[in-house]
Amino acid sequence: MTNRPVIDGPVAGGHESDRPAARAPQDTAPSALRLRFPAGVMLRAGTTLAAGDAGELLVIGERGFSVEGADRALCAWAGRLAEGMRWPAPEALTPGQEALLAAFAARDLLVPLPRTDTVDAYTKQRRWLAHTGTDPDAAQERIARHQAVVVGCGGTGAIVATHLCAMGVRRLLLVDHDAVEVTNFNRQFTYRQADLGRPKAEALRDFLLERHPEAGITAARVFVDEDTITGLVPHEPGEWTLFCCADRPVGTLAALLAGFARDRGGSVLFAAAGLDEAAVGPLLRPDDTAAHQAFAQEMEAVGAVARSALADPVMSASVAPVNTVTAAWMAGEWLNGVILERPVRSLNTRFVVDLGNSSTYEERTWR
Rank of each mutant, 00 (worst) to 15 (best):
V11E: 09
A21F: 12
A21H: 13
A24F: 14
S31Y: 12
F37P: 04
T47H: 04
D53V: 08
A54W: 02
G61M: 03
E62Y: 00
E68P: 05
A76L: 11
W77N: 04
W77Q: 00
G79I: 05
M85C: 09
R86E: 02
P90H: 02
L101G: 06
F104R: 02
A106I: 14
T123Y: 01
T134P: 01
P136G: 08
I143K: 00
V149E: 01
V151A: 06
G154S: 09
G157S: 01
D178M: 07
N186V: 11
R192Y: 04
D195E: 03
L196F: 07
G197C: 03
L204R: 09
D206M: 07
P213M: 07
A220Y: 10
R221G: 14
F223G: 09
E226W: 12
T228S: 15
G231N: 11
C244A: 14
P249V: 14
A258M: 12
A261W: 05
G266H: 03
L269Q: 04
P286L: 07
A291H: 03
F295R: 05
G303E: 00
A304S: 15
A309S: 15
L310D: 10
A311M: 10
V322A: 04
T324N: 07
T326P: 03
A331M: 06
L335D: 02
G337M: 02
G337R: 01
T349I: 05
G356V: 03
